[in-house]
Write a protein that binds this DNA or RNA. Structure first.
Length: 397
DNA sequence: TCTGGGGTCCTAGGACCC
DNA sequence: TCTGGGGTCCTAGGACCC
């Protein structure tokens, strides 16, 4: 019997910050925006003894001006109704006294690497799902089946806490789909064990949105058909779901509602694309702000090129992404004859793609993406040689 | 109070080839 | 004048996730 775990770090970014600023424990804190310099200045003012900075010296959400969003909120802040992806301006209304800390991805990545190392030393089959989440295959780990996986989950929780001071929640189930749902059951610091036989009692009463893969759009459509819980979904016939949601998605919905998921835990994967994008402080006009836009555009290309080079990839398809003041998104692609990681080549291709985009409205966001990746050290895919000077004949097959 | 940045996968039409 | 069917690549958009 397969036993799969899903591990989710508790309020990860915020918890990492609380390690540096233990004086903020228990207080409403949100991570987001970007005032790195103020933060550094604050630290310097206290001789970089971060834990000695008085609480009152930290910036508050009140009076925040800008387009930032919350990436993580402490549980104390969540009690005020603020949460991930919420605009900081809105959060400031709900909880003006919450403390605001800037994001420090480099620091979170360091802690991410450390907790994942702890896991793979105990259970080597681990799938990375971002900085703060992983799936772990318990099936073949010695003791991985004891109490449905609870014993091993406890060991992993304890080992991560000892190595990092961070807490996490773990769900163990027959597959990834159910494990992902289970890890949410007892947050924070929770462990939940789900068996196949628990489907009706533990899964079916949940709203459909709890299924990883049912988002706001699909949920709205399901509700339009009177389907609110996973149990409602499971009650529908497979052909009915296929008829209304398409062949692939309909069949997947049916399987998901019945707790069926055969996806393996994948330990390695190759990137498909790399991108950089930026939201401007104010919406920019293609003509009036041409110089500023051009400079940002070039910088984005240089950043993507640097990312590709650092990680050892080249890409064939260059794309631009525009978000207008009305939030509509437009993308344009341009494929190159040969893959590259050269900033100038990328900039030229991105420029050709951008030329084909409508530029009437003001721009809120500009992005550059490179897809069709291959390893830079891989033998170059042979570019098709020019055809010999013979006429193509019909019916060559 | 307007809503970040970095990804993956799917669909669908058209080009082009055999 | 009407008659095929794959397969793959390219492009654009969209849903979804962390």
């Amino acid at each position: 019997m397969r036993r799969i775990a899903h591990l989710d770090m508790d309020a990860f970014y915020a918890s990492v910050e609380l390690l540096r600023y233990p004086q903020l424990k228990g207080l409403p804190v949100v991570i987001g925006g970007g005032r790195r310099q103020e933060d550094d200045a604050l630290a310097a003012a206290y001789g970089n003894e971060l834990d000695r900075i008085p609480v009152d010296a930290f910036p508050r959400l009140k009076g925040y001006v800008g387009r930032g969003v919350i990436t993580t909120a402490t549980y104390a802040a969540r009690a005020f109704g603020v949460g991930s992806a919420m605009g900081l301006m809105k959060a400031a209304k709900l909880c003006p006294d919450a403390l605001l800390l800037p994001v420090d991805f480099a620091e979170y990545r360091r802690f991410s690497r450390r907790f994942k190392e702890v896991i793979t030393e105990i259970a080597p089959l681990m799938e990375d799902r971002g900085v703060d989440e992983v799936y772990i295959d318990f099936t073949e780990v010695p003791g991985g089946q004891r109490e449905g996986g609870r014993v091993l989950a406890r060991l992993i929780q304890k080992s991560i806490f000892e190595a990092t001071g961070l807490t996490c929640s773990i769900g163990v189930a027959p597959n990834k789909l159910l494990a992902k749902m289970a890890s949410e059951f007892n947050k924070p610091q929770g462990i939940s064990i789900v068996y196949e036989a628990d489907l009706q009692a533990k899964i079916w009463p949940l709203p459909c949105r709890k299924i990883n893969g049912i988002g706001p759009k699909a949920d709205e459509k399901l509700q339009g058909h009177g389907i609110v819980t996973i149990g409602d979904l499971a009650a529908r016939e497979r052909p009915w779901l296929i008829e209304h949601f398409g062949k692939a998605y309909g069949a997947w919905l049916f399987d998901a509602a019945h707790g069926r998921d055969e996806r393996p835990v994948v330990t390695e994967s190759e990137p498909v694309s790399m991108s950089r994008e930026t939201t401007f402080d104010r919406d920019l006009h293609a003509v009036r702000d041409k110089a500023e836009l051009g400079a940002v555009f070039t910088r984005l290309c240089e950043q993507v090129a640097a990312d590709l080079q650092r990680k050892g990839y080249v890409g064939k398809t260059v794309g631009v992404k525009l978000r207008f003041d009305d939030f509509m998104i437009v993308t344009r692609d341009h494929s190159l004859p040969a893959p590259t990681a050269d900033a100038t080549t990328l900039r030229r291709a991105a420029g050709l793609a951008l030329k084909r985009a409508p530029l009437q409205r003001r721009l809120r966001l500009l992005g550059v993406r490179v897809g069709g990746l291959s390893r830079a050290d891989a033998p170059p895919e042979s570019v098709p040689a020019p055809e010999p000077a013979t006429l193509p004949l019909f019916g060559d097959d």
